[in-house]
Design a protein around this nucleic acid. Sequence first.
DNA 1: GTATATGCAAAGGGTTTGCACGGTT
DNA 2: AACCGTGCAAACCCTTTGCATATAC
Lengths: 143, 143
Amino acid sequence: MQGWEERLRSQGYRVTEQRADVLAAVLNLGHGTPEEILARVQVDSPRVNLSTIYRTLEVLEEVGLVTHAHLGHGSPTYHSVDEDLHIHLVCRSCGAIDSAPAVIAEPFCAALERDHGFSTDLGHMAIHGVCHACREDAAASRG
Amino acid sequence: MQGWEERLRSQGYRVTEQRADVLAAVLNLGHGTPEEILARVQVDSPRVNLSTIYRTLEVLEEVGLVTHAHLGHGSPTYHSVDEDLHIHLVCRSCGAIDSAPAVIAEPFCAALERDHGFSTDLGHMAIHGVCHACREDAAASRG
DNA sequence: GTATATGCAAAGGGTTTGCACGGTT
DNA sequence: AACCGTGCAAACCCTTTGCATATAC
């Protein structure tokens, strides 16, 4: 994570302590909702406000330092763009979130590109369904 | 769409005019957010309340007559389970929503099942990316 | 007649916005 | 010095909930 300051400045944004804090929190958490990121930032900087988190995440996303994915009903989850590209498997039964390497979706993305001219944003992809554990539980309870 | 009344009754729910109205609105619209469904229902039944829409959609989903998908930041979109199974392609640039037949995702789903024991709910799937038109615009503006 | 469903209004969670102050350039 | 970024509070949207009345069974 070098050059994030230049990344901001080159697009006309200023470098501030809060932006550094939010970026550090995202990197540190791996994944996080705005609330979770706020909590993390407030460990060291208690005065930072939630609205700053929202505004900062928007800027960091704009300049390409973070992205977000919608994993379900609630708040979006933010993560750094540096991480290994992965897709999220959301279990509708227990709510667990598994990760799968993005390459698993590559033939599928190729088909979308070929048939629909659609360029898929893999990092944003959340797949809903039922996880392994919950399927076993269901199978067991059926006898 | 026969037997929806029995579907409700068999699970202990009552058959009401509002439930009929909401189901009809969903079928009629094809897709719709709670607000859109309300607007449709209110054409004929102006007194129906938004909270009834939410409660009714929950019941109709419970008994398997409708499902919903999360297409982005806003409200979920409901549709009948009768429709051809399809996935949604959401353009992050213009917001357009395209549909693709679910079969296009079948090898991908098979891979998730094989490698992760994960059973995908195709109807719930929303894929984010950039649509054909926006990609052409972007290419054109680059010269 | 009894339990469920509805309308209404109020509360709730998450996100955005207006404004004055403070910090970066 | 000029402008952008921040904290704070209020506003906003979407969704849920409490309660009295109306309706299906």
